[in-house]
Simulated scan of single mutants.
Amino acid sequence: MQPLVESVFYWSDLFGTAVFAFSGVLVAGRLRMDGFGVIVLAAVTAIGGGTIRDLIIGADNVFWTVDSLYLWVILVTALLGQYIAKLPRRLPWYILPLADAFGLAIFTIIGTDKALSYGTSGMVAVVMGVITGVAGGMIRDVLAREVPMVLQREIYATACIFGGVLYTGSLALGITPLLATLLGMSGTFILRVAAIRWHLSLPAFSLNR
């Protein structure tokens, strides 16, 4: 991948890290946690999925241990986020969901691609992409003593699966990595935004008759 493209993806990844960290800040604020609790929830949401992925695939190093800028982004987001969340003039409601969908798309493709680079099969790579995208939020929700959103009816992990399959399938068909990346990201982003816009959800499993 060209250096310019790699640079764009790197800064997009940091943007996604900040967005996910801010979602952790909001949950911590709703639960009236102290400053340390805010930082913990911000951190696990932002880098929890990528950490689990790197440990599973046997990466040489967990990504944030060799690039501390991720930690600085989380810390700054946690500190500023506590102030931003209290501002009387709020952002339009759709800004954070759109930013979250973009971050989800970035995380999914980065996770899938990194797994492929370590020699996993396409199916395993898709799973790693899903873990990268959703595991941090699951840890956040567990710490907040809530049922993780991804385990309910939200089309969230499903969007990751769709994007990951598009990406790995495109590569298998010989499509260039850049185009495959754009297809995978677009698939994740569009499906997630469509679910938000039209309130799409998966059917719920219930034993009640």
Rank of each mutant, 00 (worst) to 15 (best):
L98F: 13
D100K: 12
L98H: 07
F107G: 10
A105G: 13
V66M: 14
I106S: 11
Q82C: 10
G81H: 04
A59E: 05
R89Y: 12
T51C: 03
R53E: 00
D67G: 05
Q82E: 05
L87N: 10
A99M: 13
L104S: 10
D100C: 09
F107S: 07
D100L: 09
K86C: 01
L75Y: 03
P92E: 06
I74P: 10
A78N: 02
R53T: 00
I84L: 15
V73N: 08
I56E: 00
L69M: 14
G103P: 08
R90E: 11
T65W: 12
W72Q: 12
A78W: 04
G58N: 00
G58S: 03
I52C: 01
A85C: 04
Y83L: 15
A85Y: 14
L91C: 12
L75K: 06
L69Y: 11
W64G: 06
F63G: 02
P88M: 11
I95K: 06
W64Q: 07
I95S: 11
D67E: 11
P88G: 09
T77C: 13
I52S: 01
L98G: 05
R90I: 07
F63V: 01
V62G: 09
F107W: 04
L104F: 03
R90V: 09
L96W: 03
L104D: 04
L69E: 13
Y94D: 07
S68Y: 15
D67T: 12
I95R: 09
A78S: 05
Y83P: 01
K86G: 00
L75R: 06
L71E: 04
D54C: 03
F63R: 02
I52D: 00
L91N: 11
L55V: 13
W93E: 07
D54S: 02
I95T: 14
Y70D: 10
L80E: 04
P92L: 12
I95E: 04
T77K: 10
I106G: 09
Q82S: 11
G58V: 02
D54F: 01
R53V: 00
Y83S: 15
K86R: 15
I52M: 10
S68D: 12
Q82T: 15
F102Y: 13
N61P: 00
L71N: 12
F107T: 06
D67N: 15
A101N: 09
A59R: 08
D67W: 09
Y94A: 12
Q82L: 08
R53F: 00
D54K: 03
A78D: 05
W93I: 02
T108Y: 00
D60S: 15
T108I: 01
Y83K: 14
F63C: 00
V62L: 12
P88Y: 04
S68L: 14
D100G: 11
A105P: 08
N61T: 09
D60Y: 04
A85R: 04
I74G: 06
G58Y: 00
L98K: 07
P92R: 02
F107C: 13
L80F: 15
L96Y: 15
F107M: 08
L71I: 13
F102E: 07
S68H: 14
R89E: 13
A59W: 03
